[in-house]
Nucleic acid binder design. Structure first.
Lengths: 206, 206
DNA sequence: CCGCGTTTCAAACAAACGTTTGAAGCTTAG
DNA sequence: CTAAGCTTCAAACGTTTGTTTGAAACGCGG
């Protein structure tokens, strides 16, 4: 296994694919556009990933492995504390996503790709995400259940679903709110996270 | 202008396109798949709509004209009442969408297509939607502003954005909540609308 | 410095894409 | 009944799609 060249080619493809998938969708972005943007040969995708579908999965895996790990880490911290609050659990879920979206090049773009995955009714993709990262949502659901014991199971699941909706929508920048001129991207996203936690906490408590 | 045949062909194309756009996206659904599903000739799309892009716009126009009209109608009713509530304004926005999604064939599918439009970063499509239906959101924003006078303009816009997010997500069935076995589609959606109003009202009031 | 496994490359593959064409099939008015 | 105007149709247009190929280039251990 060589080192730098292979790594670099793989990484460049993943980066370009992420960007183009966010912009044009999985079907809308062609491998020729991806390889051109990555400045690699067309055949490199099938050499390194086997197929376009595998490339798509790898784009998710690269980011979600770390994102899931950080979320569970912060959730464990919250659970260890003496008096966990709803806001603290929401923070544990939202802050890692915020940090990722503020990462050097690509992080913010990935949240748009993730939102695309929700829009796709593609059952293979949904199964892949559910199989590999479903346990994260399960753990958070349990934490919320502990904090909202007065809610029925049904009631709780409905509200969590809606909270995830607001979160997904906001993180993917679907909305109409634009960054203000005197504001950095970081400031904009931090304020968004603040409103997000406040809004969903109120909704969950109802 | 002929009557039945043309009308039927146009309508069949729109119906099939709506379904396939929801399932596979705008780029993912080909005109050959659409015309095959509609049982019409391939060339019929370009004859009746001019291009695939025009077909996409027409899919939106067919549903949104009526949806927007009903929303404004109900909002006007609420504004005429002696004491409008947050829940009543939310109802005015959500109930017409619920009714559409319960319509005979296609209504529920359209909400998924609409959510795709948010996922697409396509500026042409966003401009089309904003130009033709932006005034509806404006009127609702004004109604909310009147009911939440203690909020700053910024604060209000952030919360509205998040509310639209939860709404879009829920109506498009992005979530993980499945219809329960003993439950009709109508019951499921009505319950969803109930939770949606309750959740977003709490979030808006914060 | 040679040879072998890995990676890149240009080229080609069949299939599918949106769109166009011109003739055939209709329906209706005169 | 004929002529005119829509609508449908099969076929083909040139592109673009994902994937495959076999040879060239590369990097490194022996």
């Amino acid at each position: 296994m060589p080192h730098d060249t292979q790594f670099s080619t793989r990484q460049r493809i993943l980066g370009a694919a992420e960007e183009l998938f966010a912009e044009r969708g999985f079907a809308g972005a062609s491998l020729r556009q991806v390889t051109a943007a990555a400045k690699v040969n067309l055949a490199a995708v099938n050499y390194h990933f086997g197929s376009k579908d595998n490339l798509i999965e790898e784009v998710f895996r690269r980011r979600l492995d770390e994102l899931s790990h950080r979320r569970l880490e912060r959730l464990a911290e919250v659970n260890r504390s003496v008096a966990p609050t709803l806001e603290a659990v929401l923070d544990a879920f939202i802050m890692p996503a915020l940090e990722l979206s503020l990462d050097r090049e690509g992080g913010s773009v990935f949240m748009r790709v993730l939102a695309r995955a929700f829009a796709e009714h593609n059952s293979n993709l949904r199964k892949f995400l559910s199989d590999n990262y479903g346990h994260v949502l399960k753990e958070f659901a349990a934490a919320f259940a502990r904090l909202l014991p007065h809610l029925s199971k049904d009631e709780l699941y409905w509200r969590l679903d809606l909270a995830v909706g607001a979160l997904t929508y906001a993180m993917a920048d679907f909305g109409m709110i634009q960054r203000r001129s005197g504001e950095t991207e970081r400031q904009h996203r931090e304020q968004m996270a603040r409103h997000l936690v406040h809004f969903t906490a109120a909704g969950l408590r109802a």
